[in-house]
Computed example of a mutant assay.
Amino acid sequence: MAEQTLIRRPNVSLLRLVLTHIEMHPHQWNQRDWRTLSECGTAYCFAGWTVVLSGGKFAVNPYSNQICQTRVVPAGVDPTDVTKWQHVAEYAADLLGITPPIRGDAVIHPLFLAINTLDDLRRVVAELCEAAGA
């Protein structure tokens, strides 16, 4: 039996939506953290905004009642079903149609790097959109 290869196509409309949101609301963007509180409310990185703008939510720990910083509840999933929670980078990568991160050796997609500037995000999004033929 031949091995099947999964070919992912970037979700151009979501990539552009998230980038535009960050450009329009830079005070709500913090690339260093998936989710953080700021003077202006909650700020998210590119992956965090991908989750939120797609209807997902950051999970709430049922024991401490605190918001988890790395686990999210995908849109349409029962938030009490912890077996369905996902890591923010994995879920965001899936939504964006990009290669998910490899956690074993800490490889992460360039779009999610904490050191990215807004210009870096623009460049990576443009490269992904171009690769998708958009």
Rank of each mutant, 00 (worst) to 15 (best):
Met1Val: 11
Gln4Ile: 12
Ile7Pro: 01
Arg8His: 01
Arg9Ser: 10
Asn11Leu: 09
Val12Trp: 03
Val12Glu: 00
Ser13His: 11
Leu14Tyr: 03
Leu15Lys: 04
Leu15Met: 05
Leu15Glu: 04
Arg16Thr: 14
Leu17Glu: 15
Val18Lys: 04
Leu19Asp: 06
Thr20Met: 05
His21Arg: 11
Ile22Val: 07
Glu23Gly: 01
Met24Val: 04
His25Met: 00
Pro26Tyr: 00
Pro26Val: 01
His27Gly: 02
Gln28Asn: 07
Gln28Ala: 14
Trp29Glu: 02
Asn30Pro: 00
Asn30Asp: 15
Asn30Leu: 07
Gln31Leu: 05
Gln31Phe: 07
Asp33Ile: 01
Arg35Leu: 10
Thr36Trp: 01
Leu37Glu: 14
Ser38Lys: 10
Glu39Asn: 03
Thr42Ile: 14
Thr42Gly: 00
Ala43Met: 06
Cys45Ser: 15
Phe46Trp: 08
Gly48Ser: 02
Trp49Cys: 06
Trp49Val: 07
Val51Ile: 15
Val52Ala: 04
Leu53Thr: 12
Gly55Pro: 13
Gly55Asn: 13
Gly55Cys: 13
Gly55Val: 13
Gly56Trp: 10
Lys57Phe: 09
Val60Leu: 03
Asn61Lys: 03
Pro62Asp: 04
Ile67Asp: 04
Ile67Tyr: 08
Ile67Asn: 02
Ile67Gly: 01
Cys68Val: 03
Gln69Arg: 13
Gln69Asn: 12
Gln69Thr: 13
Val73Gln: 09
Val73Thr: 11
Ala75His: 15
Gly76Phe: 10
Gly76Thr: 10
Asp78Pro: 01
Thr80His: 08
Val82Cys: 08
Thr83Leu: 09
Lys84Tyr: 04
Lys84Pro: 00
Lys84His: 09
Trp85Leu: 02
Ala89Val: 08
Ala89Gln: 15
Glu90Asp: 15
Glu90Ala: 13
Tyr91Thr: 02
Ala92Val: 08
Ala92Gln: 11
Ala93Trp: 04
Asp94Gln: 14
Leu96Asp: 13
Gly97Gln: 08
Gly97Asn: 08
Gly97Trp: 02
Ile98Asp: 03
Ile98Met: 06
Ile98Arg: 00
Thr99Arg: 10
Thr99Cys: 06
Pro100Cys: 10
Pro100Ile: 12
Pro101Tyr: 02
Arg103Met: 06
Arg103Gln: 09
Arg103Lys: 07
Asp105Pro: 07
Asp105Asn: 14
Ala106Asp: 13
Ala106His: 14
Val107Ile: 14
Val107Glu: 15
His109Gly: 12
Phe112Tyr: 12
Leu113Thr: 00
Ile115Trp: 09
Asn116Ala: 12
Thr117Gly: 05
Leu118Pro: 02
Asp119Tyr: 01
Asp120Val: 01
Arg123Leu: 10
Val124Thr: 14
Glu127Tyr: 06
Glu127Ser: 07
Leu128His: 07
Leu128Gly: 05
Cys129Thr: 05
Glu130Lys: 01
Ala132Ser: 07
Ala134Trp: 06
